Amino acid sequence: MSTAHHRRKQPALVRQQLLDVAARLTMEQGMGYVTLDAVSGASGISKGGLLHHFPTKNALIDALFESLLDRFDADMEERMREDPVSYGRFSRAYLRAVSDLRDSPAEAAHWAQVTIALLAEPRLRDRWRQWVQARAEEYVGTDSSIDLQIVRFAVDGLWLADMLGSHEIGTEDRAALIARLIDMTNRER
């Protein structure tokens, strides 16, 4: 006799399990290999159960991106709470969060795959643009100087270089680069 009808449904846990499996598949095989069938099979959740939470692959990818962005936001918020200096606080948190991705291979791999999807998918680019715009508006009083904009653009370049492995930079030079960028966030001009 089946016990399925006796199980308590836990939709939030099931949804998170599906996102975790999608993230793992993304990291291991790339975004192109994330299909509804693959996620269903790897998670042990029926395709109907998956479709209940994510009716399309795009919905699954969008949710994966949102989940990653939520974690990034939480990391940024924590870093800003720990920073007593208001000027440049957001830019410093952004710099540290992005530069620290290199030290977390699993998180970096998730971001690398999602960044590739972000470049290819207009809806994800729009969502990233919304995130950037909302932060620019929220921190206009503390992070709108040209120097801080330069820092954030440099951070984006560092992120891309780390993701692609395109620039060989030694540990000391990288630390000096980050220190110089942090110094730029501490000086009002």
Rank of each mutant, 00 (worst) to 15 (best):
M1H: 06
S2W: 02
T3V: 06
T3R: 07
A4M: 06
H5W: 07
H5P: 04
K9M: 02
Q10H: 08
P11A: 06
V14H: 10
V14K: 10
L19H: 09
V21A: 10
A22H: 02
R24V: 10
R24S: 12
T26G: 14
E28G: 00
G32K: 06
V34Q: 01
T35V: 03
T35N: 04
S40E: 09
G41S: 11
A42M: 06
S43I: 09
S46I: 04
K47H: 12
K47D: 10
G48H: 03
G49Y: 04
L50Y: 08
H53I: 04
P55E: 15
N58Y: 09
N58V: 10
L60I: 06
L60K: 01
I61V: 15
D62T: 15
D62Y: 10
L64F: 05
E66I: 05
S67P: 01
L68D: 13
L69W: 01
D70Y: 10
R71N: 13
R71H: 12
D73F: 08
A74Y: 00
A74H: 11
D75G: 12
M76N: 03
R79D: 06
R79F: 03
M80Q: 15
E82N: 12
P84F: 07
V85C: 04
G88C: 01
R89F: 00
R89Q: 12
S91T: 13
R92N: 01
A93K: 05
A93S: 12
R96S: 09
A97W: 00
S99C: 15
L101K: 01
R102H: 10
S104F: 06
S104G: 00
P105T: 04
A106R: 13
W111T: 02
W111I: 01
L118R: 14
L119W: 06
A120Y: 03
R123A: 14
R125M: 14
D126P: 02
R127F: 05
R129Q: 15
R129F: 12
Q133F: 08
A134N: 10
R135A: 14
R135H: 14
A136W: 04
Y139G: 04
T142W: 03
S144K: 05
Q149V: 08
I150P: 00
R152A: 03
F153Q: 07
G157V: 02
G157I: 01
L158N: 02
W159S: 05
W159R: 05
D162H: 07
D162S: 06
M163E: 14
M163A: 14
G165C: 10
S166V: 04
E172M: 08
R174S: 04
L177V: 13
A179D: 15
R180P: 00
D183H: 13
M184V: 13
T185M: 09
T185R: 02
N186D: 14
